[in-house]
Simulated scan of single mutants.
Amino acid sequence: MSKAEQLAAKAALPVSGGAVVWPFTVAEAAQYATLLNQVVIPSIGVLIALVTLLIKLRVWWRGSRWSRFAKEESGRIRARWWVGGSAAAVIALGLPMTAKWEGLENHAYWDAHGQVWTVCYGETAGVQRGDSYSDVECLSMLQERWGGFHSDMIACVPQLAEAPAEVQAAVTSWSYNVGIGAACKSTLTKHLRRSEWREACNQLPRWRRAGGQVLRGLVNRRADEQRLCLSGL
């Protein structure tokens, strides 16, 4: 045996299940098998089970009626805007209210007040006579447009992002009806810029006219939006 081999032999110390060869520990094959069977394989099994569960939950969620109000999660609504109220809360509060007051029309109709062809939940952009959409298409259109109005209101009034979810929902529903241009120039918006949520909510009933006339439907809609707005204060 060479001198180097003699030094290596002296450095090798016997241990249970293997040997320590400076500076490494060399385990026996049985130890690797035990580690594989008792730790690695069960861990992989748990990971696969969790992934499968998450996939099933995602499929269930996308098929549930609640997913309609939490798609951030959809359209142009951006998570960075949601500070005062969560995305799901604002959508769940505001989108159904807008849908209720706009009403669903699957076939394009002539809006005498707006002098424009309208379809679904008050959609007017690019609508032409004879256009027709399914309920699912109309809901998708509403989600996209509603999210766009919320984003536009935040761009117009950054302070709105700090408001309670109820205020954001009511203001977005109102702007969806009156238009961003009119909303951004309003006294209501001035109150929002000063974070005067209650004063802003109390401006809603003033928006009850169309074509220069007070309409009972708008009176009722503004009262509903005001109740929602104030409920968050």
Rank of each mutant, 00 (worst) to 15 (best):
Arg62Cys: 09
Ile154Thr: 13
Val127Leu: 07
Ile77Glu: 06
Gly179Val: 07
Val157Gly: 05
Thr172Leu: 07
Val83Thr: 13
Ser74Asn: 09
Leu95Gly: 07
Ala19Gln: 13
Gly85Gln: 03
Ser175Glu: 12
Ser231Glu: 05
Val46Asp: 14
Lys71Arg: 12
Ser134Gly: 04
Arg206Ser: 15
Val15Gln: 11
Glu72Thr: 12
Glu144Met: 14
His191Ser: 12
Leu53Met: 09
Arg206Gly: 07
Arg58Gly: 09
Thr118His: 05
Val39Lys: 08
Asn106Val: 08
Pro164Gly: 13
Leu35Lys: 11
Ala19Phe: 12
Gln128Ala: 15
Lys71Leu: 14
Gly217His: 03
Ser186Gly: 02
Thr98Asn: 10
Ile41Glu: 02
Leu7Pro: 05
Pro205Gly: 10
Leu57Lys: 13
Ala108Lys: 04
Ala161Arg: 10
Cys201Ala: 08
Tyr32Pro: 02
Thr187Met: 06
Gln115Asn: 15
Arg62Trp: 06
Lys56Cys: 07
Trp174Phe: 08
Ser64Ala: 10
Gly18Tyr: 01
Gly211Met: 09
Asp131Gly: 11
Pro96His: 02
Leu104Met: 05
Gly17Pro: 01
Glu123Asp: 12
Glu166Pro: 00
Gly126Phe: 04
Leu47Trp: 00
Val167Lys: 01
Arg209Phe: 07
Val83Phe: 01
Tyr121Asp: 05
Arg208Cys: 03
Gln203Ser: 07
Gly148Thr: 14
Arg221Leu: 07
Thr124Pro: 00
Ala125Thr: 12
Arg145Gly: 01
Ala87Cys: 13
Asp152Gly: 08
Val26Ser: 06
Ile91Tyr: 03
Gln6Cys: 11
Tyr109Gln: 12
Ala200Cys: 00
Gln226Tyr: 00
Pro164Val: 15
His150Thr: 13
Gly147Leu: 08
Ser140Met: 11
Ala183Cys: 06
Ala155Asn: 15
Ser132Asp: 10
Ala108Met: 12
Gln226Leu: 04
Gly147Trp: 03
Glu225Pro: 00
Leu35Ala: 10
Ser74Ile: 15
Leu218Ser: 06
Ser231Ala: 13
Thr98Met: 09
